[in-house]
Design a protein around this nucleic acid. Structure first.
Lengths: 345, 345
DNA sequence: GCCGTTGATCGAAGCGCTTCGATTCACGCC
DNA sequence: GGCGTGAATCGAAGCGCTTCGATCAACGGC
């Protein structure tokens, strides 16, 4: 509750000296600085946020726009929201959460009332309605994700195309000739969620380049449908010997489960790679090779860029974070002809 | 970008008149009010947030503190965060997100810098470290959840005790004499998440009151462990004929799945109730009877109370929202002796 | 020894809004 | 006809901070 005046009085200096001593925007004598710092500490001084916004040019607040459809794969979203908030704090920024219905209205509101210094856009759709607004708002903004039209935008994301290639190549290099991709449920592609589409498309492109047999199936929350999908995968001829799972954690768990039930040993009978997963695959059985999607990484980089944009205009760009391939115990060469597999039915 | 001065000039009045015309805090002539409103609209006037905070006594900002441990059952949390933000907007409030590590530090910061008018506490632990701080902060606050010590606090939550009783009674009244509860994974109880404990404890109390045989097992993310738990449930003598699932959606799905695999028909062989679920159980097979936990309800009420607290001090209280029981197709009487069940092994 | 310099500090002007008197004007009453 | 009354409007004082000159003292060079 202490104001800058009280700190000034306690330290025996003027309020402007307090301001400079605390912000470091002008040199202040060492002893003075120490006295001010001590007084501020002792009084528990916290600059009034409103006054700061009004007088300064920074509000120390960021807008975080994340639709957060209750249905969407929430765990991953949550991790991103969390990561953005945490990263922002490293720069002394707090985050104002803008959701769903308010997506566009909220952005104009917090922008024109000068509540926030910048915007982080999460859960970017391929054709996102928020983007035109972002473009015309002219306020520093960074997207985590890559929409169809990136003109005038700063985007950060994992390089899903490379990730897809990495997955394909890993299997191809081990000698697999027939591979499969277990993607997300239909609704996710349909909704235009950007990265799943990018991954899937790059995957099929790479598979063609490597001249592999390729099967794509969508997963499902419904275990019966999921099993049907997996069964249909396994009945493809030639049977896929490599599987990439790019879907939510429960689906990956359920898929492993079902594969085990079908008598398939991983990696002896089937090599499996978990792709763009935000969870810990070392806890699965077997621990899966994984190309992780690390929310802290993309979000952290997004905040870095946003902070740079606050200093001065940034050129539009799309920054893709190189994926990593983590080896565990789920990939090997394809089963040899002399070691035929029995698939339970 | 228009300021109140420009609106005043455009409408040919003083800035104070603009302020009163827009806020309605003093009577303004009808024609004047119309002119002001029109000018504001035409100029796209949005009051400067900082100036408002500084001059007024409201910041129109709420702190939302939600640990959001990345591991915790995220989907439900997300829904609550979303619901709070949405409810706040109905009162023209925005929400500043405070997470994890920052839980306490963040609260002091946004409070003493007068950034926020009030606090919503989510994901309350039985013994939550944030609560002492909340108590001494003396700023309007509402918890969604009920901690062990509610002294001096305003809490809102579903009445989990009644929900538990409702579930037990529903089965007991149908004639079931042996029932089981499939709870959350061990870690959740251990972490002190409040409502799961309350539900479990009330459940066992009620079961004793109704003189039923009772089995409790924890669930697991790991499908193998989950199945083991369920198997151990089913081998209890007398075999439970009623099951209440109070765990995350994937576990409920997996459990149903496994039960079907074991050859148990629902509700013919086993009656099942889904409790405190935030998802749509009508999409499961079979559609489950459910005692829903509705984030919009608790969060909405929390915001209502918080708004009341902003008007004037509220007496500490614990407001429990009565649960509802939704009938679908998963509960019937216990199997009769003449209709013995074969359980696959 | 005087002046220009430089570094440290201060004073004051806002930032854009809310809010509290004060003012103005039209009206009706004695 | 003067005055009280009340509604409508205005002016100005902050809210607590940042920031831009201005001031001041100490110092070295001539």
């Amino acid at each position: 509750m202490a104001s800058i005046h009280e700190v000034a009085k306690a330290a025996g200096v003027s309020i402007s000296t307090v301001s400079y001593a605390l912000s470091g925007k002008r040199p202040v004598g060492e002893s003075t600085r120490a006295r001010v710092a001590e007084a501020a500490r002792r009084l528990g001084y916290q600059p009034n946020a409103g006054a700061r916004m009004l007088a300064g040019r920074r509000t120390q607040l960021l807008a975080l726009t994340a639709p957060l459809h209750a249905e969407t794969s929430a765990p991953a979203h949550m991790a991103f929201v969390l990561a953005v908030a945490t990263a922002a704090r490293r720069y002394d920024y707090d985050v104002v959460l803008l959701t769903e219905d308010e997506a566009s209205g909220g952005l104009s509101r917090v922008t024109s009332s000068k509540l926030v210094d910048g915007i982080v856009v999460l859960d970017v759709a391929v054709n996102d309605q928020r983007l035109d607004l972002i473009r015309e708002l002219g306020i520093p903004s960074v997207l985590v994700g890559v929409p169809a039209d990136t003109a005038g935008l700063v985007c950060v994301d994992l390089d899903f195309e490379t990730a897809a290639r990495l997955a394909v190549d890993q299997l191809a290099n081990q000698g697999h000739r027939s591979i499969a991709l277990l993607g997300d449920p239909h609704g996710i592609y349909q909704r235009g969620s950007n990265f799943q589409q990018r991954f899937r498309d790059a995957f099929s492109t790479r598979v063609a380049e490597r001249h592999l047999d390729y099967t794509f199936v969508e997963s499902s929350q419904n275990p019966v449908e999921l099993r049907t999908s997996i069964d249909s995968l396994l009945s493809v001829v030639p049977r896929p010997t490599g599987l990439v799972m790019q879907c939510a954690e429960p689906s990956q768990r359920a898929a492993l489960e079902h594969l085990a039930g079908r008598g398939l040993r991983i990696p002896a009978d089937l090599s499996v790679i978990s792709a763009t997963s935000t969870f810990d695959t070392s806890q699965l059985s077997p621990p899966l090779d994984v190309i992780p999607l690390i929310p802290e990484e993309s979000s952290g980089r997004a905040i870095e860029l946003l902070m740079a944009a606050l200093e001065g205009p940034l050129d539009p760009m799309v920054e893709l974070i190189p994926p990593r391939y983590v080896v565990r115990d789920s990939v090997a060469g394809p089963p040899t002809g002399t070691d035929p597999v029995t698939v339970n039915h």
